[in-house]
């Protein structure tokens, strides 16, 4: 981290993503690290380091399909604990949104979310499901209004 060049342009772009602007509040106390399960189970993952790289504007290290940010468990413990209202998990998710903008989303994340847009559900319905539901005495699953989704998601 000896490079003294800060990439403010990157940070300005991050500020425009929902929740991305809160990265500015981070004063590097490390309260998030103490409660982070990913930091506990991985030697590489450290939310304070991710925030520091963000403050420095290290775009190349942060924005990629194999970036460390994808190992976040999304548990919200850092959001709960942060004394500065940084909401680190939300900053990490904003960084993930940047991955989308640059077309470097991990494959499974892309496919999973695409399935939601195409089918309206995150779990694909197979022919056996309604039979299993019927056997349990549950009502048949109806189609979801996929057309409406496409209309509201049209950029």
């Amino acid at each position: 981290m000896s490079d003294k060049q800060l990439d403010f342009e990157f940070r300005e772009r991050l500020n425009r993503i929902v929740g991305g602007d809160h990265h500015n509040y981070c004063y590097q106390c490390g309260a998030c690290v103490a409660v982070c399960p990913a930091a506990r189970f991985s030697d590489e993952f450290n939310p304070r380091d991710i925030l520091l790289m963000t403050l420095l504007g290290r775009e190349q290290e942060l924005i990629s399909a194999d970036s460390i940010i994808w190992k976040c468990t999304n548990c919200y413990s850092c959001y709960e604990r942060c004394p500065q209202d940084v909401r680190p998990v939300e900053v990490i998710i904003a960084l993930k949104n940047m991955c989308t903008q640059q077309g470097v989303l991990p494959d499974n994340v892309d496919k999973f979310s695409e399935a939601i847009i195409q089918t309206g559900r995150s779990v694909v319905i197979t022919s056996t499901i309604n039979r299993r539901r019927q056997a349990l005495g549950l009502p048949e699953l109806k189609d979801v209004p996929v057309e409406e989704l496409k209309i509201i998601l049209d950029e």
Partner: peptide, 27 residues
């Protein structure tokens, strides 16, 4: 009620695009 879709999920769909995520949730 009829017409609900995926909430949508707070991990992957949200990672892709927060505004889209909010839009589907609001619907």
């Amino acid at each position: 009620m009829d017409g609900f879709t995926c909430c949508p999920d707070p991990i992957y769909f949200k990672a892709r695009d927060k505004v889209q995520w909010l839009t589907v949730a609001a619907r």
